[in-house]
């Protein structure tokens, strides 16, 4: 241990994992700094609700909310809603990824295509997907198709634009270097352009995942009879406030889970980008 401490540059160079661990700093101080505010907020909620500082009918104590959540999950009622919500956003997000990344990679490579499509893209992006939802309902009906499509529409653009941006900002000098070694166009794409774009693509993916949940809730509040978003509206309508908050926390949890999955994937794929920063 002492020897390792005496030779820090070598240690840092040979063990990037150790360096990353050190930077994250998982000590007690780090824990307090990271979670302290959240714990404070939770405690404040609980105390102000039980003491009656706020109206407990609007902000029920957290244990009541937890009980409602548990009841909903145990009876399977909320599980159905979660399943259908996950299916809607999953299909939409998956389709946006499947279309957005390849299309973005292609558009980013070819200047003429990108230049021709850019004004259209900018226009579509600036048009709120929610504003278009009535149009989609007219076209696709009030069923699953319009719901999935509005989420797909909203998630496509962050992914597409981030991918195009990622491809366009690839260092030309690296591409030139690969060419001097006799790399073919396809090899340059596979070995240089694609890996260099991955961090930018992940920015788009994380933005899209957030957007997907946002649009999911909006879509489920209009003309749905299942789904977590529907439960929020429905519980409020029936004045089941603890259940309403349970559904809201569930949505937040879904968002967090999606983000964590993406962050972990990003860490695996772009460890190098963290180091360069």
């Amino acid at each position: 241990m002492v020897l390792q401490l005496l030779d820090p540059p070598f240690q840092a160079a040979t063990s990037p994992a150790a360096a990353i661990r050190r930077r994250t700093g998982v000590g007690a101080r780090g824990f307090a700094a990271r979670w302290g505010l959240l714990i404070g907020f939770v405690m404040l909620w609980q105390v102000s609700s039980t003491r009656g500082w706020v109206n407990p009918a609007v902000f029920p104590p957290l244990d009541t909310i937890a009980a409602a959540l548990w009841k909903g999950l145990a009876s399977g009622a909320l599980l159905d809603d979660i399943a259908i919500s996950l299916r809607r956003s999953g299909i939409a997000f998956g389709a946006a990824v499947a279309l957005g990344i390849p299309l973005g990679l292609f558009m980013g490579q070819i200047r003429a295509v990108e230049r021709a499509l850019d004004p259209v893209l900018q226009l579509f992006r600036q048009t709120s997907a929610l504003a278009l939802y009535p149009v989609f309902i007219l076209l696709l009906g009030l069923g699953e198709a319009s719901k999935v499509f509005v989420i797909f529409w909203a998630t496509l653009f962050p992914i597409l634009l981030a991918t195009i941006g990622g491809v366009k900002q690839v260092d030309r000098k690296l591409i030139e270097m690969a060419r001097t070694f006799g790399a073919s166009r396809l090899t340059v794409f596979r070995r240089v352009v694609l890996p260099a774009s991955v961090p930018a693509i992940f920015v788009g993916l994380r933005l899209s995942a957030t957007t997907a949940l946002l649009l999911l809730i909006a879509a489920e509040m209009i003309g749905a009879n299942k789904g977590v978003g529907f439960q929020v509206m429905n519980a409020q309508y029936n004045f089941q406030i603890p259940l309403m908050f349970a559904a809201i926390f569930l949505l937040a949890g879904l968002g967090l889970a999606a983000n964590i999955v993406l962050v972990l994937l990003q860490r695996r794929l772009c460890r190098w980008a963290d180091m360069t920063r």
Binding site: L174, A178, F181, V188, R191, V192, M275, T276
Partner: peptide
Amino acid sequence: VIFQEPRLLPWLTVLGNVAFGFEVR
């Protein structure tokens, strides 16, 4: 060619970078 800047691929290790020239062929 050896350029003024090293032009290394940041996502590859030293070994990966040096092998790169041969691999792309």
